[in-house]
Design a binder for these strands. Structure first.
Length: 872
RNA sequence: GCCCCCAUGGCGGAAUUGGCAGACGCGCACGCUUCAGGGGCGUGUGACCGCAAGGUCGUAGAGGUUCAACUCCUCUUGGGGGCACCA
């Protein structure tokens, strides 16, 4: 018998739509759901980017995730499993420009098509909750989020070298630069000085790091975030700087994690960006040369700076000397681009004997190399260094600190620093602030205006003497001193005024000329109608900010919106959020390990601090699907011609076969190459399952009880019953653990057994259809109705297994002699050591192996094996 | 360079967490089926020796711990991912 997937899929899907079975209600207790724990369960998949087509990767993400969602639902949870579109962003805009279509038209056309494709999957999405981030009703709240952060003092404007992609003609966040190249178009990224808006994610570094520990996330993902945050403990040291021309004292702060090596410091290096260069302008004898060096360094792209890593460059600041606070030694100061301006203090103490980079530099510039760490102590003579010894060891030539281990020395030296006012312990992070402004059209406008009048107001309020300078800590901390009229964001960014909440959204104008510009200005700047506005604070003439937001801002809070997608007054109702959030299970690609997942965590924490949400982490559990490769083992791409089109597969094999095969083909987080024949196995299985369930008597191919070589009673009755209950247990546990492949194989084993040894008992038929339901929801529905199910099988409760029926009476006792398997026999489960020993030793096989040997001992593992060990 | 992960038949992958390696599926081989082509069913399928019973070898390689290692430890090789002059 065959089932025609085309007919039953349409039929089932129409029935689901008609009955509204997947409509999600906020109420915890629902009569139309299977009785159970009646808990709400928020299950989320990463919403797709409307690229134009649902590809197999989307299917691999969404189909097994839907198996999980359906299982949770049948287990009695009120499941929210929503879907939407991450619709703003560069790729859509670029694609639209290429086709000479307006980005909005392109995006919404794609969404319409992909929505249709998504609906054919038959997942339990509640389409009434769909969100599109490019809808004004959505980005109104993206803008609200921006202002929320702005008003909390977490947004600031900075003119600084930014990652500029010349092809996309916009700046990029650090996270979007991969190996010195643009993440999207692979152009070499250059540094360009532009005024930019940044989010102070670094304020949250410690919490973003610490809270990772409690998350049920893949360890690898957590490790990547830890790595990205890059916490390192060390010390800041003040080096006194003296100039030969003028006798003025300066101090230069350096950061080091290897304070124990300070007696080996033979020079200092500062980054080209370090402001001390400008400050000491008049004292540097070779200032022209230094400036020339800095200019060339600036011109280098990140890529070049990395590529040229092997050849160190730099220039000495002539006429300047620094003094080591520990021993008063005088050391030269260099500027070199191997020191980064944005990390630590932008200056390092160079210890060539114990740092590879310093070693190279010292070799090139013929600077002294002084060893202060030896592997052992006391050591008569430290070996001559051929390269830097970077490990910890024991101190030598370090005055009072000689003999200490590196770890001890770091402690003692830090104490010394603090006592002598020459520095202190410090923690540094690699994490940098999140650059969110984009000079592009297709994004949410930044809801700020610039007002000259208000700028003066802020400046005379003397809270911020140096407008545009570094953020003053005192302002952030002086809550009481902030005048009512200006928010913290407005004080930190003089002249920048928040658009009133009631005026949101600041609509993205429908301009014709949306092409990006070369000079680093947003296309919106060309629209006078958009730019010209009134200041919401003073009513005077003002200009709108014309940059738009990075799309990652849109996706940093979307999971909140699904709980209340139509709300006009709030981004989501607090009660509704409490009902659903945080997300219990989040499923999506590992490529978002840092970007999206880190940003979302940051947003959640910021909202938590303002008591807008009651939780600190957005996603309690996280699972990644693997990547499906082409059958050639390569990444799928049109140019390679190895793309697998899910629509074609669905047409041929049906939705159920495709989703079940995706479950079965690999370990879920692994992915792997696509085997074009593989899906046949699952397709055959479903056909066979349909046939087996449909027959109530032993069929033509089903053997009657007893024929499989088992005692009649056992084969016909107990055995499949036991296996059935074992399978219920296994299937549930496997789905819970995202082991979809073994869950499917368990079902296959059950059906093989039903086919070979027994016939399906009527009372078990419905039960078995339920086991099939999460994997093959359409077929299960069809069979369910066919055999008298009145409502949907998806409103049924997941079957409970009978503990007593799982228990085996007998087991196969493995018999080993000296650790090698020599025999096996069926034995009752409760067999004792003595009984087992007696039974096994008497057996011919075992006797043979024990001949002429003396038994030393026996190892007995109840229910498993017995190992007879002979004297050797 | 640093960090993380992985390595099991011709292929995808199982293995109750130290206890029968290779479940389940693909593929392949042979057979059956009034079956014309990618259908259905049955049997077999890690390698080697053997008609068989059975035996030897076998989880990238080399050591080690253990009565017992795919599983734990050390080293080596190969592959994947992340970070990358982060002081």
């Amino acid at each position: 018998m065959f089932y025609d997937h085309r007919k039953i899929e349409k039929k089932a899907q129409n029935a689901w739509v008609k009955s509204g079975i997947y409509k999600v209600r906020d109420k915890v207790k629902r009569k139309d759901l299977p009785a159970g724990r009646q808990e709400n369960f928020y299950h989320l998949v990463m919403f797709p980017y409307p690229s134009g087509n649902l590809h197999i990767g989307h299917w691999y993400n969404f189909a097994p995730a839907d198996v999980y969602a359906r299982f949770k639902r049948m287990s009695g949870f009120n499941v929210l499993s929503p879907i939407g579109f991450d619709a703003f962003g560069l790729p859509a805009e670029n694609a639209a420009i290429k086709r000479k279509i307006h980005p909005r038209d392109w995006t919404y056309k794609n969404i319409a098509f992909m929505r249709k494709q998504l609906k054919t999957m038959g997942n339990i999405y509640d389409w009434s909750r769909e969100i599109i981030t490019a809808d004004p009703g959505y980005y109104k709240w993206t803008q609200w989020m921006f202002l929320y952060l702005f008003n909390r003092g977490l947004v600031y404007r900075k003119k600084a070298p930014a990652n500029w992609c010349p092809s996309c003609r916009t700046v990029l966040a650090n996270e979007q630069v991969v190996g010195g190249q643009c993440e999207r178009c692979s152009s070499a990224v250059i540094q360009k000085e532009i005024e930019q808006w940044l989010f102070k994610i670094t304020d949250y570094a410690e919490r973003l790091l610490g809270d990772l520990n409690d998350l049920d996330w893949p360890e690898k993902t957590k490790a990547m975030q830890r790595n990205w945050i890059g916490r390192s403990e060390g010390a800041n040291i003040k080096f006194e700087v003296k100039c030969q021309r003028l006798n003025v004292k300066y101090f230069l702060d350096v950061f080091t994690t290897r304070l124990d090596t300070i007696f080996g410091c033979t020079y200092l290096v500062i980054a080209p960006e370090n402001p001390i260069i400008e400050n000491l302008k008049l004292k540097i004898e070779n200032f022209d040369e230094v400036v020339r060096y800095i200019e060339t360094a600036k011109k280098k792209t990140d890529l070049m700076r990395t590529d040229l890593a092997k050849e160190k460059t730099g220039v000495e600041l002539k006429g300047i000397k620094a003094f080591n606070p520990f021993n008063g030694e005088e050391v030269p100061v260099f500027v070199a681009d191997y020191v980064l301006g944005h990390y630590g203090t932008g200056a390092v103490m160079a210890v060539p004997a114990h740092d590879e980079r310093d070693f190279e530099f010292a070799r090139k510039f013929q600077l002294p190399i002084k060893q202060v760490i030896c592997e052992f102590y006391p050591e008569p003579k430290c070996p001559i260094l051929e390269n830097a010894f970077e490990e910890d060891g024991h101190l030598v030539a370090s005055g009072a600190f000689d003999g200490l281990s590196s770890a001890e020395a770091r402690e003692k030296m830090a104490e010394w620093l603090e006592k002598n006012g020459a520095g202190q312990k410090t923690v540094n992070y690699k994490l940098r602030d999140w650059l969110v402004s984009r000079q592009r059209y297709w994004g949410a406008p930044i809801p700020l205006v610039f007002c000259e009048g208000c700028k003066k107001q802020v400046e005379i309020s003397n809270f911020h003497p140096s407008a545009g300078g570094p953020i003053s800590k005192s302002i952030q901390n002086s809550k009481s001193k902030i005048p009512n009229s200006f928010s913290r964001g407005e004080l930190l960014n003089p002249g920048w005024i928040a658009v009133l909440e009631k005026s949101l959204p600041v609509k993205l104008p429908d301009i014709k000329d949306y092409l990006p510009t070369d000079e680093g200005r947003s296309p919106l700047a060309r629209s006078e109608k958009f730019v010209k506005t009134k200041c919401p604070k003073c009513g005077g003439a003002a200009k709108r900010e014309t940059d738009t937001m990075d799309t990652f801002v849109c996706s940093s809070w979307y999971y909140l919106r699904y709980t209340d997608p139509k709300n006009l007054k709030k981004f989501a109702d607090a009660k509704k959020m409490k009902t659903w959030l945080p997300v219990k299970m989040y499923v999506g690609g590992a490529e978002h390990s840092v970007l999206h997942l880190l940003y979302s965590r940051f947003f959640t924490k910021a909202l938590y601090d303002g008591k807008f949400v009651g939780f600190k982490e957005p996603f309690l559990s996280l699972r990644h699907q693997g990547t499906i490769l082409g059958s050639d083992g390569q990444k799928m791409s049109k140019s390679r011609g190895n793309v697998v089109d899910p629509d074609v597969l669905v047409k041929e094999f049906g939705v159920d076969a495709v989703r079940m095969h995706l479950c079965f083909m690999s370990e879920y987080s692994q992915g792997g190459p696509w085997n074009p024949h593989g899906i046949l196995g699952v397709s055959r299985f479903l056909q066979r399952a349909a046939t087996l369930i449909s027959r109530s008597q032993p069929g033509k191919n089903g053997k009657a009880a007893g024929q499989a070589g088992l005692p009649a009673g056992q084969a016909g009755d107990k055995c499949p019953d036991r296996l059935l209950h074992q399978t219920i247990k296994k299937t549930g546990e496997d789905i819970e653990n995202f082991k979809f492949n073994t869950a499917v194989s368990g079902l296959m084993i059950l059906f093989n057994e039903i086919e070979n040894r027994s016939y399906l008992k009527i009372k078990n038929r419905k039960l078995i259809i339920k086991l099939l339901a999460p994997f093959a929801p359409h077929l299960a529905e069809e069979l369910w109705r066919k055999f008298g199910g009145k409502k949907s099988v998806h409103a049924e409760k997941w079957p409970a297994y009978d503990k007593n029926k799982i228990i085996e009476e007998n087991f196969v006792l493995v018999v080993q002699v000296d650790g090698k398997m020599r025999d096996s026999l069926e034995a009752p489960v409760g067999i004792s050591r003595d009984e087992a020993e007696k039974l096994t030793i008497a057996r011919g096989n075992v006797k043979k192996w024990l001949e002429g040997k003396e038994i030393a001992k026996t190892i007995f593992i109840p229910g498993k094996l017995i190992n007879i060990v002979t004297r050797r």
